[in-house]
Deep mutational scan, measured.
Amino acid sequence: LDITFHVDGKNIHVHGASEEVVRIIEELIKNNARAEEIKETLERLLR
């Protein structure tokens, strides 16, 4: 699975993920999660 995301100002662009995963990533970023935390969360979800 190949998910890429980047933050452009306040806009979060996520590619290669389901809508549910996109929402989770957006929440994590809004809550100022570190990249490592986001990665760990995604790995748990995608197991």
Results as ranks from 00 to 15, higher is better:
L1T: 10
D2V: 05
I3P: 14
T4K: 06
T4G: 12
T4F: 14
F5I: 15
H6E: 15
H6A: 07
H6D: 15
H6Y: 12
H6I: 15
V7T: 04
V7G: 03
D8Y: 02
D8P: 00
D8R: 01
G9T: 01
G9C: 03
G9S: 02
G9N: 03
K10F: 14
K10I: 15
K10N: 13
K10R: 09
N11R: 08
N11A: 15
I12E: 01
I12L: 08
I12S: 00
I12A: 00
I12K: 00
I12W: 07
H13M: 06
H13E: 07
V14T: 02
V14C: 02
H15E: 05
H15V: 09
H15A: 06
H15L: 07
H15P: 04
A17N: 01
A17W: 02
S18V: 05
S18T: 14
E19F: 10
E20V: 09
E20Q: 11
E20W: 06
E20I: 08
V21G: 02
V21W: 09
V21N: 03
V21I: 14
V22G: 03
V22W: 03
V22T: 03
R23T: 08
R23P: 01
I24M: 11
I24A: 10
I24F: 12
I24Y: 12
I24C: 02
I24H: 10
I24Q: 10
I25G: 00
I25W: 02
I25Y: 02
I25F: 04
I25R: 00
I25V: 11
E26Q: 14
E26I: 14
E26M: 13
E27V: 08
E27D: 13
E27F: 07
E27Q: 12
E27G: 10
E27K: 09
L28R: 04
L28K: 08
L28Q: 06
L28M: 14
L28N: 01
I29A: 02
I29H: 02
I29C: 04
I29T: 02
I29K: 02
I29M: 06
K30D: 06
K30T: 09
N31K: 11
N31Y: 02
N31T: 11
N31E: 08
N31L: 10
N32P: 03
N32K: 12
N32I: 05
A33K: 10
R34N: 13
A35H: 13
A35D: 04
A35N: 07
E36V: 09
E36D: 13
E36W: 05
E37M: 13
E37Q: 13
E37G: 05
E37L: 12
E37H: 12
I38H: 01
I38D: 02
I38P: 00
K39W: 15
K39I: 15
E40V: 12
E40T: 12
T41C: 07
T41L: 12
T41A: 14
L42R: 00
L42Y: 02
L42D: 00
L42C: 03
L42F: 03
E43C: 02
E43Y: 03
E43G: 11
R44M: 12
R44H: 13
R44E: 11
R44T: 12
R44G: 10
L45N: 04
L45R: 03
L45T: 04
L46A: 09
L46T: 10
R47V: 15
R47N: 14
R47F: 04
R47A: 15
